[in-house]
Amino acid sequence: MMNNWKVLWNGIIKQNPAFVLVLGMCPTLGTTTSAENGFGMGVATLAVLVLSNVVISLIKQWIPDKVRIPAFIVVIASFVTVIELLMQAYVPSLYKALGVFIPLIVVNCIILGRAEAFASKNNVWRSLLDGLGMGVGFTWALTLVGAVREVLGNGAIFGYELGIKSYMPLVFVMAPGGFFVLGYLMILFNRLSRK
């Protein structure tokens, strides 16, 4: 049994959901057209992850085994809708930029995966830490991919123009670029973390 500190740290590097577990690929590719968008998406996912992990851990003893997946889905979907509404009201430009990927948080395999693998078997505090760790790991991965794509494709970072825009191939913020950047970053991460 990992101690609590390890639970938190696990999701950030060792079992990073994007680079190692290869979960949540759709938003990792679809929302990383800029560092800001990647970061925003990561934070939204983190929020849902922590909330659903906590609630599921709280009610786990009342859920009959055969209906646990539908039960988890209802919990997760509700929190996603809540986050959706809050974003629409308080961060409308991010809401517009992330578009359909916000409701798609509900099918982000990370959340259902952690609910099944961790929250349904651990106490509330550890489930919170796990959600936090995985969420932070996902967020920094998304922000990194977004930053690379933004620099290479738009010559900017977090919206600040670097003055090199006219030299940069736009393809990096378009679909093929997403695949390439993620692929190469994954190779890099795995080589570095193996040392």
């Binding site: 209906v67 209802v74 509700s78 809708t81």
Partner: peptide, 18 residues
């Protein structure tokens, strides 16, 4: 019962936020 209660509670919660 469990599924219905969870769904009901969830709907109420979401409705409130809405």
């Amino acid at each position: 019962t469990v599924l219905l209660s969870i769904t009901l509670l969830a709907s109420l919660g979401v409705g409130a936020v809405n």
